[in-house]
């Protein structure tokens, strides 16, 4: 999947060579899209629209008498809502750390996998392992690893002589934050690597040969040949992983429940709690739309910064 120039600049001669059978191309295209549009439209469009509508209401199930339309008041109140603001800080930090680690680890891993070496097939298979792990199970797994009493990490570090006694890793704010980010990265890395690897696999080998002739060093070859080809897949990774990181819930919920204190209270966890525990549907929907709009704006940001040159296409 990728964002390519061709989406708007339709394939040359595409429609032209097609014999018409009474239907215009546009009609035919929408006919082909109809099944997908119907399913998405029927099942999601209404819930999405409804949630936006709710976000314009003061609507807590516990206070049905106070329900009313308040325009954008829920959104405006966020500016001075300490719970939301602290959660936003945590979320931004979480997204930045997760994205940073994902991009660095993912790129390095994809570059390694693109080389030829003994055992490459094995590593290519191993990289898919975390993908197969449901977020809930991922959270449980890291819990047992970082456990303060019986955890594998404590045992390992103690045996290596790096710590004197077992540590409660998840109890300090920084520790809990980094561990949840780490667990999230581990879980989502495979998809990143696949996309990047797919991108690397399309680089024509002549380009490397040409670079070799020019006696370009490893670094030069990376910046001159590899990186330009990776920009596109990296863009997709950034968009998808930003979406994922903003919505990360399962792993965090199982691992820390949002604590200690506010340390891992990312907006997705706060959002679920607001809707289902506090039954504040109005405010909860506003949180959701903030996530949506922020994700959208960031996606647009990525596309426009990475594709400054020339025409920008989606």
């Amino acid at each position: 999947m990728t964002l390519t120039a061709a989406d708007t600049e339709q394939p040359p001669a595409a429609a032209a060579s097609r014999p018409r059978r009474g239907l215009s191309d546009t009609a035919r295209a929408y006919l082909l899209n109809a099944p997908a549009m119907i399913v998405i439209g029927l099942l999601v469009a209404y819930p999405i629209g409804y949630s936006f509508w709710l976000s314009l209401h003061r609507y807590n199930l516990k206070l049905p008498a106070l329900e009313r339309f308040v325009w954008f008041q829920n959104y405006l109140s966020l500016v001075s809502d300490p719970v939301f603001l602290s959660s936003l800080r945590v979320t931004v930090a979480f997204v930045v750390v997760v994205l940073g680690m994902t991009v660095i680890l993912g790129t390095a891993l994809a570059l390694v996998l693109n080389e030829t070496f003994l055992g490459r097939g094995v590593l290519r298979s191993l990289v898919l392992l975390p993908w197969a792990m449901p977020g809930v199970v991922n959270g449980l797994m890291w819990r047992t690893i970082f456990d303060a009493k019986t955890g594998a990490l404590n045992g390992l570090l103690l045996q290596l002589g790096l710590i004197d006694s077992y540590q409660a890793w998840l109890t300090s704010p920084t520790g809990a934050f980094l561990i949840t980010a780490f667990a999230q990265v581990w879980n989502t890395l495979p998809f990143t690597v696949i996309i990047l690897l797919a991108g690397l696999s399309t680089i024509p080998s002549e380009q490397y040969d040409a670079a070799k002739v020019d006696r370009a060093g490893v670094v030069q070859r990376f910046t001159q040949v590899t990186l330009p080809w990776l920009l596109h897949p990296l863009l997709i990774v950034l968009i998808l992983e930003t979406m994922n990181a903003f919505r990360a819930f399962d792993t965090i919920y199982v691992l820390t429940g949002g604590g200690p204190g506010d340390a891992t209270n990312v907006i997705a966890v706060l959002n679920v709690r607001t809707v289902l525990t506090y039954t504040d549907f109005g405010l909860g929907s506003a949180y959701s739309w903030v996530i949506t709009i922020v994700t959208l704006v960031i996606s647009i940001g990525y596309i426009s910064t990475l594709y400054q040159r020339g025409r920008i296409e989606v």
């Binding site: 469009a45 936006f52 509508w53 959208l296 647009i300 989606v314």
Partner: peptide, 23 residues
């Protein structure tokens, strides 16, 4: 890119308001 997308976002918002009548 930017103009198109913000346009499409507006579209979606309108759609959202429309579908809100569905309850």
């Amino acid at each position: 890119m930017t103009p198109e997308t913000s346009f499409s976002r507006r579209r979606v918002l309108q759609l959202g308001a429309l579908t809100a009548s569905l309850p």
